[in-house]
């Protein structure tokens, strides 16, 4: 293989073609959603989806409120306090595996544990609980990656100056890895906003603006799924689905741009 010039040329062409195909596929999908959705992006849709947007924000807020401290503390423990013993390896395997668990399994677990076992209602609260578990590995991983990039001399310097491990964490480690934490949060928001399978059994469904966390609700993604399956769920039929899909797409693009912006700002600060 690859001994003749024509073979080399062929492989080179295939390599470029694959990349072009990839870009075209994404471009096709994004432009399809934009073109179909733009005409439905009006006041009617905003009125219809205001409760969905508020519900989605509530789930994002509560899930992060739980997952963020838990994730950051776990990452600190894994990076600062442990050696690479057997127990730590098992903890890592467990958290890595949690990251690979399909969302429908989270959905099954949520129904069994929160609804049947703990007796919670189908509500925004239950959905936030399961989403906090779904995004936890994401936050741990991102925080850990950021801690790993700290120059060991900075930590040693802090310790040598007489600072305790605790002070070193507070004054050196956390301020330094704030960008990794922010990245984790942004990715987590993206995951929560788009998630359907993990919460569909526990969030219930509603079309009015929720008054508390303990009411059932519909997020943008769960409602989108319902409308695609059964267009009569919305007064505008399948048109609302295109509109909501466009809103979700815009959120995803914005969040990804935000990651770039954060990295850019902190890259400068780190020099």
């Amino acid at each position: 293989m690859l001994n003749h010039p024509w073979q080399v040329k062929l492989i080179k062409i295939l390599t470029y073609l694959a990349t072009i195909l990839l870009v075209l596929l994404v471009f096709w999908m994004v432009s399809f959603i934009i073109i179909q959705g733009i005409s439905y992006l009006n006041m009617t849709l905003l009125k219809e989806s205001s409760s969905l947007i508020i519900t989605t924000l509530m789930v994002v807020f509560l899930a992060l409120l739980i997952a963020l401290p838990l994730g950051i503390f776990s990452a600190i423990y894994l990076q600062v306090y442990t050696n690479n013993g057997k127990l730590v390896k098992m903890m890592r395997f467990s958290i890595d595996s949690l990251n690979g668990v399909p969302s429908i399994i989270f959905g099954l677990f949520a129904l069994s544990f929160f609804i049947y076992y703990l007796g919670l209602n189908r509500s925004i609260f239950s959905a936030s609980l399961i989403m906090s578990i779904v995004v936890l590995p994401l936050i741990i991983k991102n925080t850990e990656e950021a801690i790993k990039t700290i120059d060991i001399a900075q930590i040693q310097g802090s310790l040598a100056l007489g600072a305790s491990r605790f002070t070193t964490i507070n004054r050196v480690i956390i301020p330094y890895c704030i960008d990794g934490i922010i990245n984790g949060v942004i990715l987590a928001i993206g995951k929560i906003v788009g998630e359907t399978a993990a919460i569909m059994f526990v969030i219930g469904s509603a079309s009015s603006i929720p008054k508390s966390f303990f009411e059932p609700g519909s997020t943008l993604a769960t409602k989108l799924y319902l409308i695609i399956q059964e267009p009569t769920y919305s007064s505008n039929g399948i048109g609302s689905a295109y509109g909501i899909a466009l809103i979700l797409l815009l959120i995803v693009v914005l969040l990804n741009l935000l990651v770039k912006l954060v990295n850019h700002i902190f890259m400068k600060r780190r020099g």
């Binding site: 994404v26 999908m29 788009g194 399978a197 993604a221 989108l224 695609i228 899909a245 797409l249 995803v252």
Partner: peptide, 8 residues
């Protein structure tokens, strides 16, 4: 592409 929700 990685971030686009699977429903979409």
């Amino acid at each position: 592409l990685a971030g686009i929700p699977s429903v979409i």
